[in-house]
Amino acid sequence: MMALEGFRFRRGESFIHRSDPRAKFLLSFAFMAMAIAFVKLKFLLLILALQLAILANGRCLKDWIRSLKGLVPLIALIFAAQVLVSWSWVSALTYSVRFVAVTSTMSWFLLTTSPDDLGLSLEQVGLPSDISFAFTMAIRFVPVISYEFQSVYDAQRSRGLELEKGSFVQRIRKYVPIIVPVFIETIRRTYEIADAMEVRAFGAKPKRTRLNVLVMRPSDWAISLVAVLLLLGTVFLQLSNAKVPWINA
């Protein structure tokens, strides 16, 4: 559950918090594309460093680190698999760093973008409000479900459940007493929320009015421009097979 800490919104007033979700999304997407396209340790470290700078600006490095700690088993798995496949430490390290770089693109975006703004920007991009609403809800409920998971885990631990003990298969089976209550509660809540929304006239009018409207500021346009250039560069390098030092040579 710790792994989720770096993927949920934290309120803040930093530059990156105040930037437009659309611009941030473009930048995050550009970073992801580059990290996937160019498998070069130096370059990946550079991308990672840039994202760490963004995280530092948003004052959410701590949450990112917590997430990273939660992801250690997965990173170790990637590392081990790569060592087995290629017999190369450098390659193993590269792939591990790539994994961290790619997950970080989502991390800083979600850490600094409120689900409401995200939904709003989806709507303003032209998505039907039902769909953007469902999307926003899904993201907003990640922490709720993670909290729920913790309470159920606590209740079962108090009845002697020990996840750390037993063989692999036994351990998997031990998740049943945790998953079932979380699942049931989630389904039950879904119905309740649907009712609660309906009694407040959700969907009564096809076109809803908005409380806030997102406006792109000059800095947002600048971020978007950088992101688009990075994306175009990535596509160009991929198609042309050109070799550039630091990036893919």
């Binding site: 108090s158 007493p177 509660e185």
Partner: peptide
Amino acid sequence: SVAQISRKVGMVFQKPENQFFA
């Protein structure tokens, strides 16, 4: 561990639904 302590000090949570799965 929580299990060791709970053997002596049992705890009942506010929401019983949180623990039902059987």
